[in-house]
Design a binder for these strands. Structure first.
Length: 462
RNA sequence: GACCCUAUCGUCUAGUGGUCUAGGACACCGCCCUUUCACGGCGGUAACCCGGGUUCGAACCCCGGUAGGGUCGCCA
């Protein structure tokens, strides 16, 4: 026995054990994250195990999605599958890491339980002789939980560990794997708390010490209801497809059910690793707030290097049906660069910058703004500006800005009086990238054409 | 129905008996900055679920309600 007063094993081993029945749920992602953080904080080992015992619901695609989601989030595992192929060589010595490959291991334990009369056969299934006493569940988040029997369990506390079709059930395989894989801390969703009494008894029957438990609260919808597949934000796939910044998603997840205890919100992973620990995990469920995630995402987006930002932006633009290939590379880059630091989500870029990639006649003016800005009294000033543009050489952001200022001064109007109608003329909107830069990118011909069209409208509105 | 967990602004949270006329962030509102928007800055609205105790003193401790969530499967 060590002299360590907390009896913390030398090497901590934790695991994330998803069942491949669909995408990676945001709650699952956070469970994975908390396990990962604990492993990294303690210098321990993070194991990924695929619990694919339900052939009716498991799919290969789901396995691949889980692995790619984990990788996207940056949650690397020290042991586990290297690919979605269950027969491929894994990383780590305690595999296989797919439960579907571990039948022999389960069978030997089942035989032992049967031989010791700790389990028995009934109707072709095998049932475990469960205690009739309450079970104390020591939990690092919830404290000691005194799990009494429910009415149903009072009637028959024993439960099935092997189905009549010969397949072992979750409770059994989960415990055997944690035992065989030397898992020291089980960090999982609170939905497993009640069932932990079964697991503790199973460990005992198998002649093993049970691991330490930490049941973390669940993530609920904004209205407090349970998050299901349909709910926006529930699937990690959404974040990958919509071009979220993985660091932002991770940062947000850290703040759900855990807190650095000071006023920090935006934290990099290393900062979190340094101070993350199990006892500070909150005990109550948290509601998912897309607004806050998006806000955080905007902060990370603004800090991205231009290369990464361009890639994200290009993908988003292509996804929304814009054929970037028909534009010069420099033009596309300049257009994208003019949106940098402006968006909270890259997926907003379509609405924000679509005018760059439309034919002038496709740009639709916002009706309300058009009625307000494209009026006859703006005709003279804007045509004066048009003439100034016409004579401008070179035609760039700097010279354009000069033309705005000098024209405004000559006419005795505010720059804004010229800026707003021109922005509408060129982009169709009242918001967007820096007008001077956008005008340079669009080029003189296009801009003068847009302005002329707006001048016609002013006369038409008269 | 039984059993378990939980309860601070709309949301995420800080707070572990006095320093709380309860702090921060998102969202919202106002002002400033500004070529629009966003950013940034300043300010504002907004919370201790209810009822009993314990105590000189309770958001913090205890009990009871209530509410939300979870579990009771030959699903995981």
């Amino acid at each position: 026995m060590s002299t360590n007063p907390y009896h913390i094993p030398m090497s901590i081993r934790v695991r994330f054990a998803p069942s491949p029945t669909g995408y990676l749920h945001i709650g699952g992602a956070r469970t994975a994250l908390f396990n990962w953080l604990y492993a990294r904080h303690t210098g321990g080992t993070f194991v990924l195990r695929i619990e694919d015992t339900d052939d009716a619901r498991n799919t290969q695609e789901a396995v691949d999605v889980i692995l790619s989601s984990m990788r996207w989030l940056g949650l690397d595992w020290d042991e586990g599958p290297t690919t979605g192929d269950a027969s491929a060589a894994p990383k780590g010595d305690l595999g296989p890491y797919f439960q579907s490959q571990r039948r022999d291991i389960y069978q030997s334990h089942i035989d032992k339980l049967l031989a010791a009369d700790k389990a028995y056969e009934q109707d072709g299934a095998i049932k475990f002789r469960m205690t009739r006493e309450p079970v104390i569940i020591p939990d690092m988040v919830c404290g000691d939980v005194n799990r009494k029997l429910t009415a149903r369990e009072e009637a028959d506390p024993d439960f099935v560990i092997v189905r009549s079709d010969g397949k072992p059930v979750f409770h059994l395989v989960n415990v055997i794997d944690d035992l065989e894989m030397g898992i020291t801390h089980v960090i999982r969703g609170e939905d497993h708390l009640s069932n932990t009494s079964k697991h503790i008894q199973l460990f005992k029957a198998l002649g093993a010490e049970c691991p330490k438990y930490a049941h973390i609260p669940l993530i609920l919808n904004g209205d407090g209801s349970k998050m299901s597949k349909r709910d926006r934000g529930a699937s990690m796939t959404t974040y990958m497809e919509e071009g979220f910044v993985p660091e932002a998603v991770i940062n947000y997840l850290c703040l759900l059910g855990w807190s650095p205890k000071d006023d920090r919100q935006k934290m990099n992973l290393q900062e979190v690793i340094d101070i993350f620990d199990l006892p500070q995990i909150l005990r109550h469920n948290a509601r998912f707030d897309m607004d806050k995630l998006v806000s955080l995402n905007g902060q990370y987006l603004a800090e991205l290097d231009s290369e990464t930002y361009r890639t994200l932006a290009e993908n988003s633009l292509k996804q929304s049906g814009i054929t970037l290939e028909s534009f010069p590379t420099e033009y596309v880059q300049a257009a994208i660069d003019s949106t940098a630091g402006k968006l909270k989500q890259v997926s907003e870029i379509k609405d924000y910058a679509v005018f760059y990639f439309q034919n002038p006649e496709e740009v639709e003016w916002d009706a309300e703004a058009s009625a307000k800005l494209l009026v006859m009294e703006n005709h003279a000033p804007i045509s004066a500006l048009r003439d100034a543009f016409d004579a401008l050489e070179p035609f760039n952001a700097e010279s354009v800005q000069g033309a705005f200022k000098s024209t405004a001064k000559e006419l005795g109007v505010k720059v804004g009086a010229l800026v707003n109608p021109v922005r509408l003329a060129c982009t169709g909107k009242t918001t967007g990238p820096s007008l001077y830069h956008l005008i340079e990118i669009l080029g003189k011909d296009r801009v003068i054409g847009d302005i002329n069209k707006a001048l016609d409208r002013m006369q038409g509105n008269a």
